[in-house]
Design a protein around this nucleic acid. Structure first.
Length: 589
RNA sequence: GGGCGUGUAGCACAGCUGGAUAAUGCGUCGGCCUCCUAAGCCGAAGAUCGCGGGUUCGAAUCCUGCCACGCCCGCCA
């Protein structure tokens, strides 16, 4: 539709310039119609009233009558002060078939934009399995990665591995000091973990972590002090770049991380690069950074020698001290994050981070510090947490839904549905479809809502396979695939472009939706709003279903060439769009 | 206490760079399989856009006060 807007814009410019109205004054007002029954593009004329010295209604009428007749437009109407433009269906059909609407593709043929984007997402501490809450980051991040690729950007998906500090220290300590019996005894009051995952390292080792946390909290004072001393020693060593300790940490968390990545892999999520937090301690860049920060005008030192920046001078409200060095000289998580970001800027021209809302303050501090170092702050996509109907999702309280369990349940329920709907399919085929449907439903359920909305996880919604869900879009795609199979090898009955009067509503609506496709993708990528594209894909599927209802592509053994071309275009957009959402575009279901 | 975010039909959610009759899905009620896969299609009912004030020709959208909920306010990560 952007194309149409540009066409209208160029003609409008002449008309309005005669009245002395500059393009800048109205260009943002020329927009997609809110009231789609009235037109496709609308210009509200109210603000011209004083310049024209006419009522808005008359201005719109005047503009409508003097607007030139164009092939691209079916009508130009004035309604109550609005100037409404309706796209000509024949023009839309020609535009769609002439490939002016770029057909996106997640894997190949993308138009390159030349933009290099580094998207960091997930970066979860490798201390236990993903629950649905933590997975929102991965799903949002991976969708963003895919949409950027679909749009033609060069994208690198990066996982920042938290391989030092307290959390990994606790895990490493536990694995060394606690036996399986110790762990079982410490966690005896908890629900036993699912037998299904006993061999999966993330589910296995998290018990050591939990047991250690329990000891740190509940053991007698003497024992607690001993444990704290041992862990502190490890953490301290890691923060000073002790390679032996870091290596032992790695052997503690690596299997956990691999287990977590296996879960993500089932959802179609993968990473191009992994960068370890310790890298920047070991290579000296953190120490160098701290010296640079010391020299800043807003830097200051606390009584015990700790270093901080007074970000209040840069507009930060509330607590304004941002500590980057402890009294003992070691770095903090945030310091390393600044060093990491400096390095990231050396790798790419655009940085995007996906972070939970709890990181907002931290991200602000890091951003301000980067600006203080004459570097840009990264773009950040913040998301709110997923709650359970019973309350907050928390590993500690055992109040969680593990992604592994959700996927198993989703698969089982999807398989039931397939079996019921397609009893003729064999076991293998059912399993394949069920897996695609299950993972798609789970991803889509999360990605379709705006990230800042804190939503409550409900099984029945995550496992909905009807309209408004991923399977609805997948189903429209399988219909298009089915038509393509049927049409293969058949003779064409005609290949004429129909006239407007011959075009049914379903066809026109599909053309309209296809014309919007890349506008939505572009906006989704520019504004970091994956849900916009997800919702557009629902619209596209709905529009395709309307086309399917109104236009017979294959009839009496003959293929309508025109309708088939439109169907094929929609099929390609559905396929690539589904891939952009991380959904396997299966051809039958 | 301070900062940030959210509040839209029974439920969930879109719209928030101001524009017309507030979009969509679930649920409810009613209809459609001799016809390219009915995981579909068609129709109906259902909304004081949290509450009050302000700006404007025009406010769900901007400003302001209040209320409710979430997150943050470690020399933790």
């Amino acid at each position: 539709m952007r194309l149409l807007q540009e066409i209208i814009s160029s003609h409008l410019e002449n008309l309005l310039a005669q009245k002395g109205i500059e393009k800048a004054a109205w260009t943002s007002m020329l927009q997609s119609s809110r009231e789609s029954s009235q037109g496709d593009i609308t210009l509200p004329c109210f603000s011209f009233a004083s310049t024209f010295k006419m009522a808005p209604k008359e201005i719109a009428e005047h503009l409508a009558s003097s607007f030139p007749r164009l092939d691209a437009l079916l009508s130009v109407d004035a309604v109550n002060g609005y100037l409404n433009f309706r796209a000509h269906p024949e023009w839309m059909a020609k535009t769609v078939l002439s490939q002016k609407i770029r057909i996106g593709d997640a894997l190949r043929n993308s138009r390159r934009t030349g933009e290099r984007v580094l998207i960091e997402h997930t970066s979860a501490n490798p201390n236990g399995p993903f629950h649905v809450g933590r997975a929102r980051n991965a799903i949002l991040g991976d969708t963003l990665v895919r949409l950027h690729r679909l749009h033609g950007n060069d994208v690198r998906a990066e996982y920042y591995v938290d391989d030092m500090g307290k959390q990994v220290g606790v895990l490493a300590w536990a694995l060394e000091h606690l036996s399986e019996e110790d762990v079982n005894e410490l966690l005896s009051d908890r629900e036993q973990p699912s037998q299904r995952w006993v061999d999966k390292a993330d589910h296995q080792r998290v018990r050591w972590y939990q047991a250690a946390q329990k000891l740190r909290k509940d053991a007698d004072e003497e024992k607690k002090a001993e444990i704290e001393t041992q862990i502190s020693k490890l953490v301290h060593a890691s923060e000073h770049g002790d390679v032996n300790v870091l290596t032992s940490f790695e052997s503690a968390y690596k299997p956990v991380l691999d287990g977590m990545l296996a879960t993500l892999s089932r959802l179609g999520i993968s990473f191009d690069t992994f960068t370890k937090e310790s890298t920047f301690v070991v290579d000296g860049s953190v120490a160098k950074l701290m010296r640079t920060l010391d020299a800043l005008p807003i830097a200051d030192t606390a009584e015990n020698g700790a270093g901080f920046l007074d970000l209040g001078q840069r507009g930060l409200k509330g607590k304004t001290e941002f500590f980057y060095r402890r009294g003992d000289g070691s770095s903090l998580y945030a310091t390393r994050d600044v060093a990491y970001h400096k390095w990231k800027w050396s790798q790419s021209t655009r940085l995007i981070n996906v972070l939970g809302e709890d990181h907002k303050l931290q991200a602000k501090q890091v951003g301000l510090t980067l600006e203080e170092l004459n570097q840009q702050r990264p773009e950040v996509l913040f998301y709110s947490f997923i709650k359970l109907p019973e309350g907050k999702m928390s590993t500690r309280q055992g109040n969680v839904v593990f992604m592994d369990d959700l996927l198993e349940e989703a698969h089982a329920q999807a398989a039931d549905v397939v079996l019921q709907l397609r009893p003729e399919y064999d076991e293998h085929k059912i399993a394949k479809i069920a897996e695609a449907v299950a993972t798609a439903a789970v991803r889509f359920n999360i990605v379709k809502v705006s990230p800042e909305k804190g939503f409550t996880f409900r099984w029945e919604e995550a496992l909905a396979f009807e309209a408004g869900s991923a399977p609805f879009i997948m189903y429209a795609h399988t219909r298009a695939c089915s038509i393509a199979r049927k049409a293969d090898g058949l003779a064409e009955s005609s290949n004429q472009l129909p006239t407007v009067s011959e075009m049914p509503e379903g066809l026109v609506e599909l053309l309209r939706t296809i014309c919007k496709h890349n506008d939505v993708l572009e906006r989704s990528v520019r504004e970091q709003k994956p849900h916009l594209f997800a919702l557009h894909m629902l619209d596209l599927a709905t529009a395709y279903n309307g086309f399917y209802r109104d236009c017979a592509v294959v009839q009496n053994g003959r293929v309508n060439g025109f309708a088939f071309s439109i169907s094929e275009t929609a099929r390609e957009l559905l396929r690539s769009g589904l891939e952009g959402l991380g959904i396997n575009p299966i051809e039958e279901m």
